[in-house]
């Protein structure tokens, strides 16, 4: 058993999961927005980065780690809500390319502003968890208290989001607004408000992904989320864009794929993991991963 935990196979499993949960969080956040407003938010990663940078600025003033996390999430939610209200709402009913163009522009603006305020060097917040790997009979287990924290936090957030959608009145109204906006309106649901709340939730989930990066040994730099966004985007696409579970599974799969490529091939080509998963998914579903499930009315 102990030699199993320290095997290189398990090293890769742990490493892949640690990376994968970050992709899953981003993928989940993309799916929340896609389901409610049918926008592919290309600025999702940059918004998360920006929110976390704002959260980090508090660290110098002696605020504890958990306050930084909370602040990043709150700033992320505010940014998400404001983005929906100001940038996206005027574009409903317009061609689907419009919000994509706007959000790609917003991504560039956020990264430029972050770089000019905080420079392009990586910033870290030290999480109150050790980064030192566990050992078993003198051999390394590729798990540290921090990695366990990162996986538990990500899974906890996903469960929280799932519970909110599944079990609360707000979640029911969010689901109805996404599934059948007109019927929801006829039943008195304030659909516009639900769309804003959907963006807020999504940006809050995204911020957690950036917070985890910032808490890790490499820290977070302004364009750091670009690669994470691509992986999260592929994960969401492979999962079908309509399915939160699919997105989460896609994220884990890509994390694992990248880790195994890194270990058995070369670290330089690790990002190919996502592409390989995408190609395989396209081979299984040649009709396209963006095809909507049948019977869905807008």
């Amino acid at each position: 058993m102990s030699s199993f935990l320290t095997s290189s196979f398990m090293h890769n499993i742990f490493g892949g999961l640690a990376q994968g949960v970050i992709f899953s969080l981003v993928a989940l956040s993309l799916v929340i927005i896609w389901q409610s407003t049918h926008v592919l938010n290309f600025a999702q990663g940059a918004m998360a980065m920006f929110a976390t940078y704002v959260g980090l600025t508090e660290i110098g003033r002696g605020v504890g780690y958990w306050w930084c996390v909370l602040l990043s999430v709150v700033v992320g939610m505010a940014l998400g809500g404001a983005t929906e209200r100001v940038l996206i709402r005027p574009l409903y009913g317009k061609p689907e390319i419009n919000p994509i163009v706007v959000m790609v522009g917003f991504l560039a603006v956020l990264e430029a502003v972050a770089t000019s305020i905080w420079t392009s060097t990586a910033r870290t917040i030290a999480a109150p968890f050790s980064q030192i790997y566990f050992q078993s009979h003198g051999k390394l287990v590729l798990l540290s208290p921090f990695i366990i924290f990162q996986i538990v936090l990500a899974i906890g957030i996903m469960l929280l989001v799932a519970a909110l959608f599944r079990f609360t009145k707000l979640g029911l109204q969010l689901r109805a607004s996404a599934l059948a906006p007109e019927v929801a309106r006829l039943l008195g649901v304030r659909v516009n408000r639900m769309l804003t709340i959907g963006w807020m939730l999504s940006a809050g989930v995204g911020a957690i992904a950036a917070v985890i990066l910032a808490s890790g040994s490499f820290g977070l730099f302004p364009t750091d989320m670009d690669g994470v966004f691509v992986a999260g985007f592929i994960a969401a696409a492979v999962g079908g864009l309509e399915s939160p579970i699919g997105a989460i599974a896609g994220g884990l799969l890509i994390g694992l794929a990248e880790q195994f490529i890194l270990a058995y091939w070369s670290p330089n080509v690790a990002p190919l993991g996502g592409i390989i998963i995408l190609v395989v998914a396209l081979m299984i579903r040649p009709q396209g991963i963006f095809t909507k499930s049948v019977g869905r009315r807008v």
């Binding site: 009145k169 029911l172 109805a176 599934l179 059948a180 039943l187 649901v189 019977g295």
Partner: peptide, 12 residues
């Protein structure tokens, strides 16, 4: 709303 249960439709 077909994707919701009978009870969720009613609650809505």
């Amino acid at each position: 709303i077909e994707e919701l249960t009978v009870e969720d439709n009613l609650r809505l």
